[in-house]
């Protein structure tokens, strides 16, 4: 085994010319620039989300009669959009640099739990969001359809609801596909690794 250690360690000493190509010095300015860019992207995203919210609210207040139902509908809709944006952002799967320096056993636990939290998006948060959106939009349209016959109103509300459900299911199926592609292989590796770690 000592001989193997020597063979192993020869890489990097014998290959020092190659390793010199990994100059840490050259990376510092790039890393600093990258960090600045990441901060800018975050600021840009926040400003973008707030602007979209503002435009939506402006649209709702100018297009719809400001009845009690309409105001409640707009309130429910904007609150649920805001909530889902915050939840999506907070639950987004990412391993921080601090978590990256955990022991591997702990990192596997953290990663698995994060993936399961991400899974909860599909089973809890997004269906709940759909319910609130359906409620909010239907409330907003109550006044809009008020002059129509009851059957026509029911028809329009049903169409609204069905189209939202269909759009939601389409979006959800894309997200689930992406999730399976991205996380299922990782989850399988985590389970295999954990079982190897636990078996002496």
């Amino acid at each position: 085994m000592d001989q193997l250690i020597d063979i192993w360690q020869s890489v990097g000493t014998d290959q020092r010319n190659m390793d010199k190509k990994y100059k840490a010095e050259d990376l510092i300015p790039q890393i600093v620039r990258l960090e600045k860019n990441q901060r800018k992207v975050l600021q840009f995203k926040t400003i973008g989300a707030l602007s979209v919210m503002f435009i939506l609210l402006l649209f709702f207040f100018t297009q719809f009669t400001l009845s009690l139902n309409g105001i409640i509908g707009i309130g429910i809709l904007s609150t649920s959009i805001l909530a889902v944006v915050i939840i999506l952002n907070r639950l987004r799967f990412r391993i921080s640099d601090q978590e990256r320096s955990l022991s591997m056993h702990n990192l596997l636990e953290v990663t698995e739990s994060k993936i399961k939290t991400e899974q909860r998006l599909f089973t809890i948060y997004l269906p709940l969001f759909l319910l609130f959106v359906i409620l909010g939009i239907n409330l907003m349209y109550v006044e809009y359809f008020i002059e129509m016959e009851t059957r026509t109103r029911i028809f329009y509300h049903t169409i609204l609801t069905i189209s939202m459900v269909v759009a939601f299911l389409l979006g959800l199926s894309i997200r689930i596909k992406r999730f399976r592609k991205r996380f299922q292989p990782l989850l399988n590796r985590i389970h295999k690794f954990k079982s190897d770690l636990d078996n002496h």
């Binding site: 391993i95 990256r100 320096s101 955990l102 591997m104 990192l107 990663t111 991205r182 990782l186 690794f193």
Partner: peptide, 12 residues
């Protein structure tokens, strides 16, 4: 070493 093995494991 922790950072390295974890990065290798999580590498996508």
């Amino acid at each position: 070493y922790r950072i390295t093995v974890n990065t290798i494991f999580l590498f996508n």
